[in-house]
Write a protein that binds this DNA or RNA. Structure first.
Length: 829
RNA sequence: GCGAGAGUGGCGGAAUUGGCAGACGCGCUGGACUUAGGAUCCAGUGGAGUGAUCUGUGGGGGUUCGAGUCCCCCCUCUCGCACCA
C-alpha cells in the first residue's frame, strides 16, 4: 500500500476495471426490482462544465447506492446532438457540424469516464444519427395520421440571431431561450404538434406528479393556464356580423360599456372601411406599458341588455388567446378601467363587495373592483353573488343561443419547424398536383445530407441543396420538392429516455410494438414496460416547462399509439441548483468558471465528488470554494493515512460479523454504537431526500471517532476492522475509486460495486446513556447524565436530585413539571 | 402587479412530531513537530463579560412550560409568470 493517497493512479485503474467488467450494463431481469436513474443528457458543446459535473455525480451516487440496495439499476447516457452551436461552429471555423459534434462527443465521453461516472454505455443514444432521428420522423408521420401534426400559417416567434422560429415555451422574457435575442413576430407556414389536444390531461395528471418539486408542477399548471368561461356573441349594429368574445366574468356582463378587439382581428378588415382608421389601428404601439386604442366606428349590442356600445381596436388584446375580442367592463377589470379613463368611456359598476351598505351605483375612482361580490343593476341577477350569477348567466346564454360555456388554455400548439440545417428533416414532400404528401414510412429515414454549404446567410442550407430538395412525389411520381425545415431539437429529447430502454441508437425499433390492427395495438415492447417510468430524473430547473412538458406530451402520444403503458414518464424529479462562484452563476462571460479537467488533475475526481455532494443539498445552489475542495481531500487523506498506519491490523479480512461484544470497553462500545448510528443516518439521509451533505457529515463524524480509537485487544481490533469496513462501504457511492482501492487493502477480493449496503441494528444504535437537560422556566440550568429509557418518574427524580437544581428551587413549589423522553425536564416555578 | 421559495456565526451549511441552536466542513486564533510550512497533528472558535451569567436564528407581535420550527403583520433577497380577458 502506498503511503500517500495518489488519486490519479487509482482512478484510472478502477475506471478501466468498471468499464472492462461492464458492471453497470444491465439486462431486463424481472426477478429484481428495477430502478431507472436518469440525468438530462448534455448538448455536446465541447466540454463538460461544473453544472454537468454536479448533475451527473448526483445521478451516479444514486445509481451506485441503489445497486448496493439490490436494485437492477438502469443508468444510461447520451447526446442531445442536434442544434445551433454546431452550425455556428461550422460558419466560424469551417468545420462540418457532424465532425464538430462527434469530436465533442468523443472528448466529453472521455471526461465523463474520468469523473468515475458509470453508465450502461451499450445503450448510448446520439440524436443526430439517422438510426435515432428516423424515429422522430416516424413519430411525426404517426402524429400526422392522427391529426396531431399539422401545418398552418401563423404569426410566430422569430429569433433574428438564430434565424429561426421558436415555440412559445422557448421565448423567455421576450427573448430567445438560447441566445436572449429579442424575439420578433413573423408570419410563416409552420408545422405544429397539437399539444393542446392533451392540455386537459397534462393538467389533470400534474396532480399525480407527487415526486416532483411543487414549484415545477405549479409552473406547468400555470403554463397550461386553464380557464373556464363563456363565449358570447355580440351583434354588430347595422350588420349581420357577430362579434364573439370570451370572458370568465359573465357576472359583469351588465357592466360592459365597450368592446375591444385585437388589431389583427378579422372583423376590422370586414367592417372598417375608413382608411384613416385602419392606418391608426396599424400604428398602434405594442408597448405593454401604455394602453392604446382606436374607435372602429362600429357599435355592438349587449345580448342581455340590448345596449349599444362602441367597439375599439386595442393594443392589449391578444389575437392568440380566446377569440381575440373582449367585452370591456371598466368597473371590474383594471385594464379596461385604465383604457376607459384614457378615452373617457363610461364606467358602470355592477358588483359591490359583500356586506356593502346600500346598493347605490358607485363608479370607482382609482381602480377597478376585480373581486367577486354581489351583483347590482344587473336586471334579474341583481342581488346574486358573483359565483351564482356566473352559473345562471352562463346557462341563460346557452339556452337563448347567445353563447356557450367554454374552457380556454394559455397553452398553444407546439411549433416544431426550424429554418436550420442541423436537425431532423421533416418527412414531407410537396407535389404540384398531390399537395402535401408524407414520406412513406418505408422510405425513412429521410437522411440529412452532409454535402451542404453552410453560410449562415439567406435561406436554410437545405433549401439550397438541390440534391436534397428535388425529389419525386411518392404518389404520382412527378417532380416534387422536399420540406426543407428541420424539427425543433426538443423533439429529440422528448423520447430519448425511451430509446435507452430499447437499447440505444442501433436497437431502437417501435414497429414490433404496433400490431397490424391499428385500433387495438398490442403491446409487446416488454423492455419499455420493464423500465418505464424513470424512477429518478435529475436536471436543471430551466426545463420546468420546456423539455419536461414536451416529454410528458410525447409519453401520452406514445401511449395512445400503444407503445408504452404509462401515463407519465418521470416518477420523481430532482432539480439541482446552480453552481455559483463569487456570488454568480459560473459562466464564461463572467469569467468565473472552474474547469473540471484541471480540478480532477489536481485533486482527483473523488475529492471533487465529495466536495460537490458535501457543500450543499442537491436542490440548492452550490457555492464553489477551492478551500472547501481541499477540505474534502483532507478528509480522504486522513482515512487513507489511518488505514496505511494500521495496515497490519486492518489488512486481515474482517468477517463482517462481530463476535461477542458484551465485554467491550466503554470506548469500544461507543464506537460500535456510533458505527450503527452512522449507517442509519447515512441511509436515512439518502432515502429521505438525497441530502448527501448530511450523509457525508455523518460519515466524517464516524471517521473522527474511528481515528481517535485505539484497540486494546483482539476483539477490539475486530471491531476496528468492522468499523473501517462499514466506513468504506458507506463512502463508496461518493468516492468510488478511493473506496474500491481501500476495499482491496483491507483484504477484500471482490468489487465493492456488487456489495450489499450495510444495515444497522436498532438495539446497538440506541444510546445507553443520555444527557438530561434540566430547565427551570424554559432556561437550561443543569445537565446530568442518566441511563436511557427510564420512565418519566425516575427521570423527574434525577432532575430534582441535581444539587444545582435543588439550590435553585429551594423553598419554592413547582407549579408544573414537563418531562420529555430522552431529552429534558422543564420545571416551572 | 401575481405566484412560489428563502433569510441561522466571518463563510458553506446542520437541527424527525415545537424540546440542549450552530452538527460537519471552510476560515481564523494559539500550540506541537520542523531548516522551512501554504504539509501534518493537538486545542480553541456565535456575540458581550475577568466571572457566575446575559444575549442570540431578518424586524415586530402572538400561541406555548418551551418557538429557528406554529399563527398574524412588516422588511429584504432569489426565482417563475407578466396585459391570458
Amino acid at each position: 500500500m502506498e503511503e500517500r493517497y495518489n488519486a490519479q493512479g487509482i482512478e484510472k485503474k478502477w475506471q478501466e476495471f468498471w468499464d472492462r467488467e461492464k458492471l453497470f450494463a444491465v439486462k431486463e431481469d424481472t426477478t429484481l426490482p428495477k430502478f431507472y436513474c436518469l440525468e438530462m443528457f448534455p448538448y455536446p458543446s465541447g466540454r463538460i462544465h461544473m453544472g454537468h459535473v454536479r448533475n451527473y455525480v448526483i445521478g451516479d451516487v444514486i445509481t451506485r447506492y441503489k445497486k448496493m440496495r439490490g436494485f437492477n439499476v438502469l443508468h444510461p447516457m447520451g447526446w442531445d446532438a442536434f442544434g445551433m452551436p454546431a452550425e455556428n461552429a461550422a460558419i466560424k471555423h469551417s468545420v462540418h457540424p457532424s465532425k464538430w459534434t462527434h469530436e465533442n462527443i468523443a472528448y466529453m465521453k472521455d471526461q465523463l469516464k474520468k469523473m468515475g461516472l458509470v453508465y450502461d454505455w451499450q445503450r448510448e443514444v446520439t440524436t443526430c444519427s439517422p438510426e435515432y432521428y428516423k424515429w422522430n420522423q416516424w413519430f411525426f408521420l404517426k402524429m400526422l395520421e392522427r391529426g396531431l401534426a399539422y401545418k398552418k400559417a401563423s404569426s410566430v416567434n422569430w429569433c433574428p440571431s438564430c434565424e429561426t422560429v421558436l415555440a412559445n415555451e422557448q421565448v423567455i422574457n421576450e427573448g430567445c431561450w438560447r441566445c436572449d435575442t429579442v424575439v420578433v413576430e413573423k408570419d410563416l407556414e409552420q408545422w405544429f404538434f397539437k399539444i393542446t389536444e392533451y392540455a386537459e390531461e397534462l393538467l389533470k395528471d400534474a396532480d399525480t406528479l407527487g415526486g416532483w418539486p411543487e414549484k415545477v408542477v405549479t409552473m406547468q399548471r400555470n403554463w397550461i393556464g386553464r380557464s373556464e368561461g363563456v363565449e358570447v356573441d355580440f351583434r354588430i349594429t347595422g350588420s349581420d356580423r357577430k362579434l364573439r368574445i370570451f370572458t370568465t366574468r359573465q357576472d359583469t356582463l351588465y357592466g360592459a360599456t365597450f368592446m375591444s378587439v385585437a388589431g389583427r382581428h378579422p372583423v376590422i378588415r370586414e367592417l372598417v372601411k375608413d382608411k384613416e382608421i385602419i392606418r391608426q389601428i396599424e400604428a398602434l404601439s405594442d408597448d405593454p406599458e401604455e394602453k392604446q386604442g382606436v374607435f372602429t366606428g362600429c357599435y355592438a349590442e349587449n345580448p342581455l341588455t340590448g345596449e349599444r356600445i362602441p367597439v375599439y381596436a386595442a393594443n392589449f388584446v391578444l389575437m392568440e388567446y380566446g377569440t381575440g375580442a373582449i367585452m370591456a367592463v371598466p368597473a371590474h377589470d383594471q385594464r379596461d378601467f385604465e383604457f376607459a379613463k384614457k378615452y373617457h368611456i363610461p364606467i358602470k359598476a355592477v358588483i359591490v363587495p359583500e356586506n356593502t351598505e346600500g346598493t347605490e351605483n358607485v363608479a370607482p375612482d382609482n381602480q377597478a373592483f376585480e373581486d367577486y361580490g354581489i351583483l347590482i343593476e344587473s336586471g334579474p341577477y341583481s342581488g346574486l353573488s358573483s359565483e351564482e350569477a356566473r352559473g345562471k348567466i352562463a346557462e341563460f346564454l346557452e339556452q337563448e343561443g347567445l353563447g356557450k360555456k367554454v374552457v380556454h388554455y394559455k397553452l398553444r400548439d407546439w411549433g416544431i419547424s426550424r429554418q436550420r440545417y442541423w436537425g431532423t428533416p421533416i418527412p414531407i414532400i410537396y407535389c404540384q398536383s398531390c399537395g402535401i404528401v408524407p414520406v412513406p414510412i418505408d422510405d425513412l429515414p429521410v437522411i440529412l445530407p452532409e454535402d451542404v454549404h453552410i453560410s449562415g446567410k439567406g435561406a436554410s442550407p437545405l433549401a439550397e441543396t438541390e440534391g436534397f430538395v428535388n425529389t419525386k412525389c411518392p404518389r404520382c411520381g412527378a417532380d416534387a420538392r422536399r420540406e426543407t425545415d428541420t424539427m425543433d431539437t426538443f423533439v429529440d429529447s422528448s423520447w430519448y429516455f425511451i430509446a435507452y430502454c430499447l437499447g440505444g441508437n442501433h436497437k431502437v425499433n417501435f414497429t414490433p410494438g404496433l400490431s397490424t390492427g391499428e385500433s387495438t395495438p398490442t403491446l409487446h415492447l416488454s423492455q419499455l414496460s420493464y423500465w418505464m417510468p424513470v424512477d429518478q430524473y435529475i436536471g436543471g430547473i430551466e426545463h420546468a416547462v420546456l423539455h419536461l412538458l414536451y416529454s410528458r406530451f410525447f409519453t401520452k402520444v406514445l401511449r395512445d399509439l400503444g407503445l408504452v403503458r404509462i401515463h407519465e414518464p418521470f416518477k420523481s424529479l430532482l432539480t439541482q441548483g446552480m453552481v455559483i462562484k463569487d456570488g454568480a452563476k459560473m459562466s464564461k462571460s463572467k469569467g468565473n468558471v472552474v474547469d473540471p479537467d484541471l480540478l480532477v488533475e489536481k485533486f482527483g475526481t473523488d475529492t471533487v465528488r465529495i466536495f460537490s455532494m458535501f457543500a450543499a443539498p442537491p436542490e440548492r445552489d452550490l457555492e464553489w470554494s477551492d478551500q472547501g475542495v481541499e477540505g474534502a481531500l483532507r478528509f480522504l487523506n486522513r482515512i487513507w493515512t489511518f488505514i496505511y498506519k494500521n495496515h497490519g491490523v486492518l489488512s486481515i479480512r474482517a468477517t463482517g460479523q462481530l463476535k461477542d461484544v458484551s465485554h467491550l470497553s466503554a470506548s469500544a462500545s461507543q464506537l460500535l454504537r456510533k458505527t450503527h448510528q452512522t449507517i442509519k443516518k447515512v441511509t436515512n439521509s439518502i432515502e429521505r431526500d438525497y441530502h448527501f451533505n448530511t450523509a457525508i457529515a455523518a460519515l466524517m463524524e464516524l471517521v473522527n471517532e474511528t481515528l481517535a480509537f485505539s484497540p486494546s485487544d483482539e476483539d477490539e481490533m475486530d471491531l476496528l476492522r468492522y468499523t473501517v469496513r462499514q466506513v468504506i462501504l458507506l463512502l463508496s457511492p461518493f468516492a468510488p475509486h478511493f473506496s474500491e482501492e481501500l476495499w482491496r487493502e483491507i483484504g477484500e477480493r471482490h468489487t465493492l460495486c456488487n456489495e450489499t449496503w450495510p444495515s444497522w441494528n436498532e438495539d446497538i444504535a440506541k444510546d445507553e446513556e443520555i444527557e438530561l437537560v434540566v430547565q427551570i422556566n424554559g432556561k437550561v440550568r443543569a445537565r446530568t447524565t442518566i441511563a436511557a429509557g427510564l420512565d418519566d418518574e425516575t427521570v423527574r427524580e434525577s432532575a430534582f436530585g441535581d444539587a444545582k437544581i435543588q439550590e435553585l428551587i429551594k423553598g419554592k413549589t413547582p407549579r408544573k413539571v414537563i418531562v420529555v423522553q430522552g431529552r429534558l425536564v422543564n420545571i416551572v416555578i
